[in-house]
Amino acid sequence: MDVGVFLVSAAIVLIGAVGVLTARNPVHAALFLVQTLFGVAVLFVLQDATFLAAVQVIVYAGAVVILFLFVIMLLGVDRAEDMGVEPIAGQRPLAAVIGASLMGLLLTLLLVATGGPTGTPGQTAPLGDGVDNTRRLGEALFTDYVFAMELTALLLTIAVVGAVVLVRTVKGDLQPLPVVAVATANEETEIDTQPGPESDAEGGVA
């Protein structure tokens, strides 16, 4: 049964990924992305990462893609992109070559590494001893990884503030530069163009 679930979700994931690549309309690409994210969530469940599967659906499919759709609708870019135009000559063949070599490299690596993962199982945070996955993650996050956890909280705060600052609209014309900056700029221009008065002033001071 696991094999069936894996194959079906893998097909869903790959079809969604190809859809993101080929969809001409950004809205369709976002919906294909939702498909891929759901497939990945199913694969998480298949590996007993139930908390991450829930977060994947809630945060990724629920929040991130909705944010994408908001921006698409807000900007009105939901019209089909002309895929026939290729602004940089040979961009697509080159990208295909790069992608194929990347995939070849990764798959070769997997073929060579037949022994499986060589790491040693974790001592502090073991899996598979019957304890609830969510409880395990929560305990690890708020004990061993509490500093990283706080840093991500800080990161999210900075991201929110940054987003607000970036999309803030300035009312009226563009704001003039501060007086000090303008004075400095003018002074530098004078030095560049007319060195005479500047040197006189300096001489006076000396």
Binding site: P126, N133, L137
Partner: peptide, 8 residues
């Protein structure tokens, strides 16, 4: 590997 680190 039976390690929670991946999920973290």
């Amino acid at each position: 590997l039976g390690d929670l680190g991946g999920q973290l």
